[in-house]
Design a protein around this nucleic acid. Structure first.
Lengths: 351, 351
DNA sequence: GCTCCGTGAGAAAACGTTTCTTCTGGCGAA
DNA sequence: TTCGCCAGAAGAAACGTTTTCTCACGGAGC
């Protein structure tokens, strides 16, 4: 059924209209607006003026058609292979990263699309819709998503580094990452200064670079002080329950005077476990979390944590990716974003 | 600096190559692949076969250029005007909705882009990048985002209804929503059956349709039973702290034997407040939350809640939006998604 | 034997840009 | 004066599709 009265959108003004109104050719308009060609400033200004007055906005599809790019960037959400969708663990971290990434992309006229990763039903879609580039968040070793993208010749920036098998070389490492080594050291030092002597670690499976970094740094730190490392690797959902179980294990087999939880929810679980055993925080045991969350402020006692900057990570990753896509020279292939320590009640110095 | 060896992606196969390989014209290829024109099935099959063998994938930009669409759909994340980005309250709900929406869009060759809404720096971008359509999540009355989109002639589907001023008429209401009226009644009935007689409500500011629905349904339910409604509207962040404060208020001024929290985190806060006052759940007071979250299972006691289906909401919204964009006939302008009650420990029937 | 019509298929225009190439004066140097 | 060069600007091709026309052919109806 044909609509009776076609609403008839006012038919967008194109480059031709601008050219006509400005009394120049379309070539000149294009040149003027894109800063190309040889034109005196006066002409550029005049054209820009007319374009603005007419509300001209270039047609994206046309620009992309001639430019040979789709204007689409991908961002993977899940950890394929780990079994655990990242959405369940550090969801707030993700949303901030994603929002910043999307905004950054949009500002440069790219559209950021979400994917849950290779292996899903999205798999085909990734193939179907050719992306100009992709950000892969927290890749695992031999990450299938990264592999597939590289095979397709798609530029990739990872958030967190791609873990490599010992001996292997990372071929084309371009990444953005939090400074986990520094952050972990800072947390450990903070705990030490607060009086801790036997610090235990609850961490995530060593699949992603951040988990590996944390673990290595902790080991090195212990080694430097000649103390035995005490680690539990949390399984399953990496939520409060996993943290609780891991902390119980730690408290059962030893007498840690501090616990560092490698994810916010692990730390919360550890806090609950300590309380459940009748331990007083921070008098009997110190608790610190590895990533910050709004709820930490309201915990009892408030939870010391390391503040990461997911938005910054997302922004930088997209900037890097776009530079890659547009063959711009990239100054630095790696970006390391510093962290901040937020000391709170759970690690108040002992009297 | 020109690269020494251009990697030279294998130059994608276009419709021309397919036509040549199949021994037909590009027109025929286009017709065969898109199910248009008058062609015998045999020709179609042959063409499809060649296309598949060659790995042909149509150039999106070209299709869009001729089709006059950008292939971009927007999804707003924030509640403009409410001051509170929705990301902070029901973040899990959002991520699920978003993921499903994105996947659905991708399957139909649309890219879903995220926006934080009108008024931000994204504002310009919305104007710049013309969207084919947009999903607005939980719009508020006179929602500026919706208004701006409509003014631009962009099709809009809302998730949750657009609250209208009394007397005003919603002009072009196309929405997808949870069945909040039914859900609220179900929860209230459940509490009543478990023995509750004085049920209090903690809810969000009455800006979005779901808050309004909840509130109205609660009021009506009370009226039917001839009991006085007892409501606190939580302020600020709508998190655990707000729920805690609201519950304290309720417990101070009256003796409710059940509290219904209109958002998961409000309910958690209420649970904490009840415990803090030394009340036993469910013996002294019943607690139920309005939306489910994984943590509810592990709460002590586990928290009764209503399960919503954000993924379904997101999927349906995008389907509706695409139908709108492509001028397909839309069977139903409204979609109501049912909810499920998850009875758990916090509302165990009293002995 | 002519016309008409339906089927199958292709030529070419169109979509709105960017970019490569060409054109035109004018001015300075020889 | 002539040549060459350069700034300034425009013409036209190209990007890869879809879609509108047009065309050829053969069989049915008269």
């Amino acid at each position: 059924m044909a609509p009776v009265t076609e609403p008839a959108r006012p038919k967008r003004v194109g480059i031709r209209e601008v050219a006509a109104a400005a009394g120049v050719s379309v070539t000149t308009v294009s040149h003027a607006l894109n800063g190309k060609g040889r034109l005196p400033e006066s002409t550029r200004d005049a054209v820009r003026d007319v374009a603005r007055r007419l509300g001209y906005r270039p047609n994206l599809s046309a620009q992309r058609l001639v430019g040979g790019r789709t204007g689409l960037l991908g961002l993977t959400l899940a950890h394929p292979g780990s079994g655990t969708p990242a959405t369940l663990t550090d969801i707030a971290y993700f949303v901030q990263l994603l929002t910043a990434a999307s905004t950054t992309a949009l500002a440069r006229r790219y559209a950021l699309v979400l994917s849950t990763g290779v292996g899903d039903s999205d798999d085909e879609v990734w193939q179907q819709t050719s992306l100009d580039g992709a950000v892969v968040v927290d890749p695992v070793a031999d990450d299938p998503t990264v592999t597939a993208l590289r095979a397709a010749g798609t530029p990739v920036v990872t958030t967190g580094r791609l873990p490599v098998q010992p001996g292997a070389e990372e071929s084309e490492p371009i990444w953005v990452d939090n400074d986990h080594v520094d952050g972990t050291r800072r947390l450990l030092t903070h705990l030490e200064r607060a009086g801790a002597r036997r610090i235990s670690l609850i961490t995530a499976p060593l699949l992603t670079s951040y988990a590996i970094d944390l673990h290595r740094t902790y080991q090195a730190w212990c080694h430097e002080r000649g103390v035995e490392p005490d680690v539990v690797i949390a399984q399953d959902d990496l939520g409060e329950r996993a943290g609780f179980a891991a902390a119980e294990q730690l408290l059962e087999r030893g007498r840690p005077d501090a616990i560092l939880g490698a994810l916010d929810r692990l730390a919360v679980g550890a806090q609950l476990a300590a309380k459940a055993r009748g331990l007083s925080i921070p008098d009997d045991i110190l608790i610190a979390g590895y990533t910050d969350a709004p709820a930490h402020l309201h915990a009892e006692p408030s939870l010391t944590a390391l503040q990461l900057h997911p938005a910054e990570i997302g922004r930088r990753a997209v900037e890097l990716l776009i530079a890659l896509v547009e063959d711009e020279p990239i100054a630095e292939r790696h970006v390391v974003v510093p962290t901040q320590l937020l000391p709170r009640g759970s690690t108040r110095r002992r009297r």
